[in-house]
Nucleic acid binder design. Structure first.
Lengths: 120, 120, 120, 120
DNA sequence: GTGGTCTAGACCACC
DNA sequence: GTGGTCTAGACCACA
């Protein structure tokens, strides 16, 4: 799951893992997610690294801390994550992609082939 | 040109700059490119940083060294760079993009709007 | 260990030292090797010089980096090193040697004498 | 002939070229060899680089300078070159080769195959 | 603690 | 002049 030789830092990888689990309903809203220690064991990382990931998620209101109990998925988190991804994707990524297509001479047909081939 | 606040390391930015200049025929094949010292002055970086960039480009056969003379754009470099970018884009990036479109519920119409709006 | 008067650059000497230690099981597969700083102290060189050696070894998949932890000997590294040396020797070196023997009029008997004299 | 991207310096490559031409009787003893300028044109190098090569050859008594006339192959040069190569080969190279064979588990049979396959 | 990067300055062989 | 290497010292993100 986590990739130690990746250029992306581990804690950001963990952030993405947790988000994905929320989107895919592995972690459902209002429910408690695994503790820092549990997650650290599962992902084979240092607990501190999970702490850092939880800080980020907490700051973004994806999860909230109940003192002495644990972290919980915030209500509306799933929607927030999806909207955020959507916005970033449309504003940042797509224009870049479109530009590259034109520079690299990749036609709309080429694109459509990949689009149609891709299983959801 | 070089962006010091970028997360991407300077020497890798320089690699991209040189590649871009080859693609855009600023540096033409078989011709000598500026020396590490000249480029360092132009880009306002330490010569060693340019040396590192040249190492990468040399390893990838984009440029070749003539001892005591300087670096030259390898023949075929332009094509190699473009093909490499194209391949990476089609194999790595496009499938991810298409997948995200489907997950994030972005229609082909949305895509076409951005496509048509983008000036080349 | 490192030879400063050698024409071969220090960082490439370090590459060879590390490879040798892997071959001789001083550094075993999957295990962590010393940090750049530790090795620098041992070999009496600047840490940066070790960094450079590690870059080469890493590029060749001899060692792999675990972010924030250190470098580890890749599984299969020992075999890869030996096979690589063997291949280079047979393909590049031996034919040249044989050719020189014929040009320089060195007989198989001469060769056998040296072969038998050499202690392993 | 000359290899600019080789690790071996150009002037030493030229030294070897000249020696080879003497061994193969392209340059015969007591005869004049091409001037620095002529050789530089032929090998596409800077004349200074040839000068340096001639210095080495001169120092080793392979060629001798006749002021205002040019360089000449010294009498006995061919023999000297061959003997020198022979000595270096037996003293420096063969023991190293034999050692590598044993370390890399290359049998005498393997060696003989290459020996017999090599055309002179 | 780990490695990654950058700078400044030096020395070198080479062309 | 060219690149190649090395050092010393610094700062950074990361685990």
């Amino acid at each position: 799951m986590t990739d130690f030789s990746n250029t992306k830092s581990i804690y950001l990888q963990i952030v993405e893992i947790v988000k994905k689990r929320i989107i895919t309903d592995k972690y459902t809203e209002q429910e408690r997610i695994p503790s820092v220690r549990e997650l650290a064991v599962e992902l084979q990382v240092n607990p501190n690294t999970c702490v850092r990931a939880f800080e980020v998620l907490s700051r973004d209101n994806i999860i909230i801390n109940k003192r002495g109990v644990g972290y919980f998925v915030n209500s509306g988190a799933k929607l927030v994550i999806l909207e955020d991804k959507r916005k970033k994707f449309i504003v940042d990524e797509l224009p870049r992609v479109v530009n590259n297509m034109k520079i690299l001479n990749i036609s709309l047909d080429d694109f459509m082939h990949i689009y149609n081939d891709s299983q959801f």
